[in-house]
Amino acid sequence: MSVLIYTENAGGKFKKSIFEAVCYARAVADQSNTTLTALSIGNVNTDELSALAKYGADKILTVTNSQLKNFINQAYASVIAEAAKKEGAAIVVLSNSFSGRGLAPRISVKLDAGVVDGAVALPEQNGGRFTVKKTAFSGKAFAIVELTSAVKVIALTPNSYKVVEVAKPAKIEEFSVDIKASDLKTILKEIVRSSDKVSLPDADIVVSGGRGLKGPENWEMIEELAGVLGAATACSKPVSDAGWRPHSEHVGQTGIAISPNLYIAIGISGAIQHLAGISSSKVIVAINKDPEAPIFKVADYGIVGDAFEVVPKLIAAIKEHKALV
């Protein structure tokens, strides 16, 4: 047996969340004293592929079939399942990214595998039982799921496993597979990337604004604060509902769930649906003029004050700090 990690790329590069998944998969392989094979699909150069070894891959398979240059859910799922069979993989790991969420269920059906989506910790193997902890109820709880099938699929939540480097070479091999025409029905017309910004699900730091900011014109200071921190921007649901910000920035129970190292909530009351999506942040900072706002019940640090006065001062203080360190 072995462990297979599917390493998704974005424009030929691997993101931090992919390296996290490689490190996680390395640890899973170590639990069973077995090898880790990484699988890359699409155009990724040798330097970038070699980076996978640095995070623990013993062997790297690359699929450069021209039909698979762009992500096609069905075809990619078939290739990953084929690679799993070829490598005799008992466990397939991938990132629970937006694409990963389309792949994991399809792979699990192909391999008759139980699947854990949104894993937040390493599997535990006790007395022949294989269990994995995952988020449930939109971040309000965790579920411990037992997988009872021979083959298992695990999709790892971004920002929930530490990246550690190991010094280790690995060989890179071409992997070629025949693709069924019926797997290629989806045609990519266009990719739109707002490349200058940090993507929200992957971000280490997130600056988030709520209705307390009064209107879209006031997001300039949120953007600036995010800029000095190298952070992504987010918002509460009423803000995206009002069209002040795009839906893709809406965090919470009905938006996206995130687990950054630092979440800064500005002018956000902290409704239960909002907290669901952010409560696994490592550190939460709240800036709100109402000392009774529920956000202070979950925050680690808080400033009671008017955002329009506090945020510019905070930006200045961060700039000063960055100049010093």
């Binding site: 699990s108 008759d112 595998a113 139980g114 699947v115 854990v116 269990t131 902890k133 449930a136 971040g139 309000k140 709880a141 965790f142 579920a143 411990i144 799921v145 037992e146 997988l147 009872t148 099938s149 409560s279 696994s280 939460i284 900072v285 709240a286 202070f296 019940k297 979950v298 925050a299 680690d300 640090y301 808080g302 400033i303 009671v304 004050g305 008017d306 006065e309 506090v310 001062k313 905070l314 200045a316 203080a317 000063e320 700090h321």
Partner: peptide, 27 residues
């Protein structure tokens, strides 16, 4: 192929540490 064995609720978060509105440098 899968079975939920048990649930956990997130660990309660500690007390908030408040910082004065005129002192973001402290934050």
């Amino acid at each position: 192929n899968s079975e939920i064995i048990s649930y956990e609720t997130p660990a309660p978060r500690g007390q908030v540490e408040l910082i004065g509105a005129d002192d973001p440098a402290k934050l």
